Simulated scan of single mutants.
Amino acid sequence: MGCRSLKKIKLFRISLLMLLTVIGLSAGSLTVNAASWHHGTPKEIRGLYQGKRTSQAEGFGYYYTVTSKSFTLAVSNWPLQKDVHLKYKKLRPHVYRLVGHTQKRGIVKGGHSDSVVYRKGKLLLTTDYKTYQKKKLKAFKLDLKNPAKRTHKLSGEEGPIVRS
């Protein structure tokens, strides 16, 4: 009788070990898939960024407001372009792909948004994903002429005018 109970205990332990192994492997595969896409925006790019004015008619230089749940672009004399329901994927160091939904507002059409954001020091550069696929980091070359710089408050008309 003592031998049978030892066999039952041994069989129970082996079954338990196999069950834990199967659970561990299935949970491991879920975390691998979830590691590529994340909800919201990356902490590295959150904040307020402003570019310089490009003409005398602009009241302020364009600016980006990045929060944990939205990415907003504001250009003087244009309606806000706000992307929500975001998820992001890190493409390389300091480069993120943001996918979400652009809210309909005025002449801004609502719909799917797919962009790439590159943070270089205090500068924030953006482009659409198709352009980034073709040109990689060269896609941000045009944006470097008037980059959005991290700031704590927006500046108005006093800023210099940048000629493209």
Rank of each mutant, 00 (worst) to 15 (best):
L86T: 01
L123E: 07
R97V: 04
S29I: 12
N77R: 14
Y88G: 06
A74G: 07
S29M: 13
L16N: 04
L20T: 14
R46V: 11
P147R: 05
V116T: 02
Y64I: 08
K90I: 03
L16K: 09
L137F: 08
T131H: 02
A148E: 11
G28K: 07
T54E: 14
V84G: 02
F60A: 05
K109S: 12
L125W: 02
L11A: 13
R150E: 11
E157P: 06
Q133H: 00
V22I: 15
L20F: 15
S113E: 03
N33T: 09
K153Q: 08
A35D: 10
R119F: 04
G156A: 12
I107D: 10
S115A: 09
Y88I: 04
L20G: 03
K7A: 13
G59A: 06
K130A: 08
N33F: 08
E157F: 14
R13H: 08
L144K: 15
L19D: 10
L6W: 14
L16F: 15
K52Q: 14
G59F: 10
H152N: 11
A34S: 10
K130G: 03
R13I: 12
A57V: 05
R13L: 15
K145T: 12
P147K: 08
K82W: 04
H39R: 11
R92I: 03
I23F: 15
E158T: 15
M18C: 15
T127Y: 05
L17S: 12
L86N: 05
C3K: 14
L144R: 15
L16Y: 11
M18Q: 15
T31I: 13
N33P: 01
D128I: 01
K43F: 02
R97M: 08
Y132C: 01
L142N: 13
G28C: 05
S113I: 04
G40Q: 06
R105A: 08
H94D: 12
L11E: 14
F12V: 01
P42T: 07
R163G: 08
R97S: 01
T65D: 01
V22G: 05
N77H: 12
Q133V: 06
K153Y: 10
N33K: 14
S113C: 02
H101K: 09
S36K: 12
P93W: 03
R150Y: 05
K82Y: 00
L48P: 05
D143T: 02
F71Q: 01
P147I: 00
L16C: 13
T65I: 11
T41K: 03
G59I: 07
G121C: 09
G59Y: 03
L17G: 12
G2H: 11
S70I: 07
Q103R: 12
R119P: 00
I107K: 05
L124T: 02
E44T: 09
A35N: 09
Y118L: 08
Y62R: 08
K87E: 06
